[in-house]
């Protein structure tokens, strides 16, 4: 798993096939895509850790986050697409566990039209993730 960057994919982004939407930095992420460093954790551990995080529902209650599994991109792919990768260890809070392996893929320097990071660049990452395949849970 050397130089892999694990990405948890929401079940909505894996219907029939893997959607490049899973590799888009969201406005809430401020152009930063959350990944876990494959040199510091495993695909299984990354997946299990994600499921211990919670989100707040409109009624104020909290539920666990979901994941269709762990996919991976590589640092090389990020470099090729001008996406710096930086460490971003998370400390434990009430709603999320500590995560030393947490890293950020920085989309803020993408040139061209603003939508590029969401469409074509995210597609490049998704293609690499497809080549690697789902790492956890293991495919049948």
């Amino acid at each position: 798993m050397k130089d892999f960057l694990f990405r948890q994919v929401h079940p909505c982004h894996f219907q029939n096939g893997l959607s490049s939407g899973a590799f888009r930095p969201t406005p809430n992420d401020e152009d930063m895509l959350s990944v876990d460093c494959g040199n510091m954790t495993t695909a299984e551990a990354s997946y299990n850790l994600h499921l211990t995080k919670t989100k707040q529902l409109p009624d104020g209650s909290r539920v666990a986050l979901e994941s269709a599994g762990t996919w991976a991109i590589t640092r090389d792919t990020c470099a090729t697409n001008s996406l710096p990768v930086t460490e971003d260890p998370l400390i434990a809070t009430e709603t999320q566990p500590a995560n030393d392996a947490h890293h950020l893929v920085d989309f803020s320097g993408i040139e061209g039209k603003p939508s590029r990071k969401n469409d074509t660049v995210a597609k490049r990452l998704k293609q690499r993730a497809l080549e690697i395949g789902r790492l956890w849970p293991a495919a049948d």
């Binding site: 909505c12 982004h13 096939g17 893997l18 959607s19 490049s20 939407g21 899973a22 888009r24 406005p27």
Partner: peptide, 14 residues
């Protein structure tokens, strides 16, 4: 091969 909602309330077909 894929159809998914987007965070902004859109739909993406691939």
């Amino acid at each position: 091969y894929a159809v998914a909602p987007t965070e902004g309330g859109g739909i993406l077909l691939e």
